[in-house]
Design a protein around this nucleic acid. Structure first.
Lengths: 340, 340
DNA sequence: AATAGTATTGCAAATGTTTTCATAAAAATT
DNA sequence: AATTTTTATGAAAACATTTGCAATACTATT
């Protein structure tokens, strides 16, 4: 007579309440067409009454998919990742997946640990940011034969699937624009490039293009700034004190570029008359800032969406051979660059 | 002789390889002190060799905790949520939890669905944004007796635990600052307030304070703008066309305020001489924009961190009685407001 | 009316782990 | 040397579900 009372309802409680077997209840969820509509109705009523919620953990044990996709980001606290992650997650949620998210704070060893943890949860697939990962990480991915996609970077020799832009090209395009305007005195502001292949690719693209045009950037015009508008502004402020300063600034991303614009404005420099500034990314707000920012557009929303679509494909097909999708970058010339 | 080859290693494979029983392997993970160091070493070797990864799904079935916390946000694609989510997740990850994240796009019915899905995954706790949820959502939370915390809003009568700021007060403080400067011609720009108690609270706080000072905001000076810098700028641009425009703008959040500043600049209006602008939030970049934005600071990082700590506590204690934590808001007066 | 086919259901085995209980071996105590 | 205590391990049950197989009931066909 001791009904279990405190503990939550499970599938056999539902079965009992609906006066059918547990198998039938299970079937009613997973293959509704195999069960009599009348029975189904009884079951639904019992489910409602008991407040039963299915247990995906128990389902996952049957080799069924867990219905989760792991997403590993350096941090979400960057406008640009937030945008990618949002459109990525929209696709997944529309397909019925849930996202297991973890961040590693730009530490690739932590990334490996985090990946392991996600695998313990038996995610059906994993998405990572960038193509720069430790050997351990790649091996784990391969050994577990789990669908994986790298978001944000493209390389035709990537070890795992990737969907992203050619950051090297982005750097080139930025440099080309400055060159085309006639600039020679060009400064560079980039984030630290270790463990960040996005920034590295862009910087290389830029300096190579400049070098090809016979322009070398002196060391005192190369600056490092983190992905943080305040810190970037401060770095630029210092630079502007310097008597001999560049006439144009090529920034590793739009956040840095925004910092640079604010720094210039606070010093009374006119952008673009006194100082041309170009960024990379075309983030939200880059079009609205005054002056509107010239930049190289990297289509974050698209990349997120396509990554999402790709990972569900890979999960569905179980395929683990790399698929590589290149997203276009293009110059977006607005009002923060000129030459006089 | 048919070794299972294709399928992934499980705990009994490890046991076999280490020549011990599955129980011992399990113990070696969960209660290492109960197993002989020598045996443990054998097991570790076997684990490595087979590339074994524990299955949390199977663990979760034993009433053990799943080690996941559900996080439901309207969208991550907002600077402010990104910041909260980041510090929230840092705390959780440090404690060994993984985040199951889902978004509902400001649709409270979808929020309910999303919550159900998270519960199917047997999250150990849930965090939501704001206190405005459907009755269904609250009931589900209560019925499942799952630790829940509402992030971002505070109310001393909240039905679930909450950690956040008093948005009503934030609105008041913004209005008070403008009043203190001597402003009378004040415009309001807020996001849509349905399903968004943060915005509603702020708006009410602001209009009540203004009303108490004998100032009523005419309908043609009340504008609605989404949380989007571009759209906000556009709304302001239209407003500025109007011959009879306000002298000060009270914006529902800093993103809208930034849009307003850019709109003013693009119209050649001087901020703050011609137009004072105040926001709410103190987001990243608000201090750096030129002119630096006056705003009401809502400590996003703190809120995220404290929410994380709270949910961990609640999960550990299994407590489900609401705990309420109020985070301070305060005026941050910078250069975007004045009176002449 | 007999047969074949189909729709619906239940039983039992299987999934990968944890945990209780029992047992054996080793160490400590007398 | 005998006994008690401690340490280390294994066997088996339990967790919540799914699914293959078999059984039953119903429908359609001749």
């Amino acid at each position: 007579m001791v009904k279990k009372q405190n503990t939550k309802a499970d599938i056999v409680d539902v079965a009992r309440a609906a006066k059918v077997s547990a198998s039938t209840v299970s079937r009613s969820f997973n293959h509704p067409n195999l069960v009599n509509p009348a029975t189904r109705k009884k079951i639904d009523r019992a489910v409602k009454k008991l407040g039963y919620i299915r247990n995906r953990a128990a389902q996952a044990m049957h080799g069924k998919r867990s219905g989760t996709i792991g997403l590993i980001v350096p941090t979400i606290d960057h406008a640009i990742f937030a945008e990618v992650v949002q459109s990525f997650s929209e696709v997944l949620e529309a397909t019925g997946f849930t996202i297991l998210m973890a961040s590693h704070g730009f530490d690739l060893d932590r990334e490996y640990q985090v990946l392991r943890k996600l695998l313990e949860h038996r995610v059906d697939g994993v998405a990572l940011i960038g193509l720069n990962h430790t050997e351990d990480t790649f091996q784990l991915l391969e050994q577990q034969e789990i669908p994986a996609v790298a978001i944000w970077n493209y390389s035709d020799q990537s070890r795992i699937s990737c969907v992203g832009a050619d950051n090297h090209l982005a750097g080139q395009l930025a440099a080309q624009h400055l060159l085309a305007l006639g600039h020679q005195d060009i400064g560079l502001i980039f984030p630290a490039t270790d463990g960040n292949d996005r920034a590295l690719g862009r910087m290389n693209g830029a300096v190579e293009t400049l070098a090809a045009a016979g322009i070398s950037v002196p060391d005192e015009w190369r600056f490092e700034a983190p992905y943080d508008i305040g810190r970037a502004k401060k770095v630029c402020l210092e630079m502007f004190q310097h008597p001999h300063r560049p006439k144009a600034l090529l920034c590793g991303n739009d956040v840095i570029a925004q910092g640079a614009i604010f720094a210039a404005q606070s010093e009374g420099l006119n952008v673009p008359q006194d100082m041309s500034i170009i960024g990379v990314g075309d983030f939200k707000g880059s079009a609205e800032i005054e002056p509107a920012l010239s930049t190289i557009r990297i289509p974050a929303k698209n990349i997120g969406r396509i990554s999402g679509e790709l990972i569900v494909d890979l999960v569905a097909s179980g395929s683990t051979t790399p698929e590589r999708i290149l997203c276009d970058v293009k110059q977006i010339i607005r009002n923060s660059t000129t030459f006089s």
